[in-house]
Design a protein around this nucleic acid. Structure first.
Lengths: 130, 130
DNA sequence: GTTTTTGTATCAAATACTTGACACATTGAT
DNA sequence: ATCAATGTGTCAAGTATTTGATACAAAAAC
């Protein structure tokens, strides 16, 4: 399996970004647990029918986000969410619940998905230092 | 005033998309109320120092999303959120509250902003038919 | 009916992005 | 010490996107 990753060449979102987004979500949601080993860039690239450099780019950006870590020979492993300063780990469940609540509320209000993303982005930049 | 719109040419997000996102958020959040008239494409373009066609593109996409509407000579006006089938209007307050709750929860968990966006996108595509 | 204001369409040029092939670096295993 | 497997870096080619200028269309005002 390709770790559940699929790409759609007709999508305007470029392949490396599709890979990055899917892995980011899967890791945060816990499907890919900390310590999990991701497929090698070559094997995932072969499975998807694309070049290794494309997968490598997705991995590189995920590493810069702190979600994965690359050992040279050991492949690439998932790094858990950053240890929360005071609280204990596992606070992610609350985040996922909050996301799902938001989606239900937004859909009930008739918001389109894209509009909801815009709204979240707008609030994120507004709430930089409250 | 430019309706509070600003663009950053150094941002990898292209100007037309920056404009679209900001207007989308402002409309959904209610800062730009239904019936409000947006600046003309030429005036906003002049204020921002860019070409009119760039603003026109943002307006066009916002119209396709159903957020604004263009009369030819009357300019462009905000169309409120779509009337919710059963519930009454104003359900947006609940959406905004849910967004703000999510942001607080995510930040408390140490999630980076970009990662949160990825998570929301991932859940949106998962929850297509639950 | 003419004019003026506004959005729309077109299109070419410039720009930026993405990809994929190849060579390189690192590291664990043998 | 050597080898093999893995991620990284480079870079040129192709592709796609974005922009801005200009001309066009519609519609309200006069």
């Amino acid at each position: 399996m390709t770790a559940g990753i699929t790409i759609d060449l007709a999508d305007p979102v470029p392949p490396y970004e599709q890979i990055r987004r899917q892995l980011s979500s899967l890791i945060t949601v816990g499907v890919l647990a900390p310590g999990s080993r991701l497929p090698t860039v070559r094997s995932l690239a072969a499975d998807l029918g694309i070049a290794a450099g494309t997968v490598a780019r997705a991995y590189k950006e995920l590493e810069q986000s702190g979600l994965i870590e690359s050992r040279r020979r050991n492949g690439t492993v998932v790094v858990g969410p950053p240890a929360v300063p005071n609280g204990q780990a596992g606070a992610d469940a609350a985040v996922i619940a909050a996301v799902d609540r938001l989606i239900r509320t937004a859909r009930a209000a008739g918001l389109r998905d894209d509009t909801l993303i815009d709204l979240v982005r707008g609030r994120l930049t507004s709430k930089l230092e409250p």
